[in-house]
């Protein structure tokens, strides 16, 4: 199918880092079933480094590929780098996504941020709340409904 780049199809067919981390240091879940995609990111953080990352995704091909690529991009990186990951970087690494699938990359960025936020909360680490998406007012699903 020409809908997706070869990179997207590769990450969709052979997703990296699928699974669950037991006793993860941070867990982030975004999206909802009504919209047709949910992403859940599990982080293992050691000395400020993303020592391990796993994901579970309910969603279309680009949602699975975006999750896979995003986890690859942050694995082994400092938390600060993971926090700086943008959806644009995920899209570029995937050699592009169709316009109506860009929200999948946004979900990947937000799921990682949420997992890091969870890590900060669990460990009582001070952080700047404005850096994180507010899921109560997330535009993802309202954009879907338009």
């Amino acid at each position: 199918m020409a809908l997706y780049s070869e990179k997207v199809m590769d990450h969709f067919r052979n997703p990296r880092n699928v699974g669950v981390i037991e006793n993860a240091d941070g867990i982030g879940e975004v999206g909802n079933a009504k919209c047709g995609d949910i992403m859940k990111i599990y982080l293992k953080i050691e000395d400020g480094i993303i020592a391990d990352v796993k994901f579970e995704t309910f969603g279309c091909g680009s949602a699975i590929a975006s999750s896979s690529m995003a986890t690859e991009l942050i694995k082994g990186e400092p938390v600060s780098e993971a926090l700086a990951l943008t959806n644009k970087a995920v899209v570029e690494a995937l050699d592009g996504l169709p316009a109506h699938k860009l929200h999948c990359s946004v979900l990947a960025e937000e799921a990682i941020k949420k997992a890091i936020q969870d890590y900060y909360e669990k460990n009582g680490i001070e952080y700047d709340k404005t850096q994180f998406p507010n899921c109560e007012n997330c535009s993802h699903c309202s954009a879907h409904a338009e």
Partner: peptide, 21 residues
């Protein structure tokens, strides 16, 4: 979700369709 189902079935040589968004 239906789209990922269709893509994987296509990999197995099966042409199908879905009502997924």
């Amino acid at each position: 979700e239906g789209e990922s189902l269709l893509l994987l079935l296509d990999d197995k040589g099966i042409c199908a369709s879905s009502g997924s968004a």
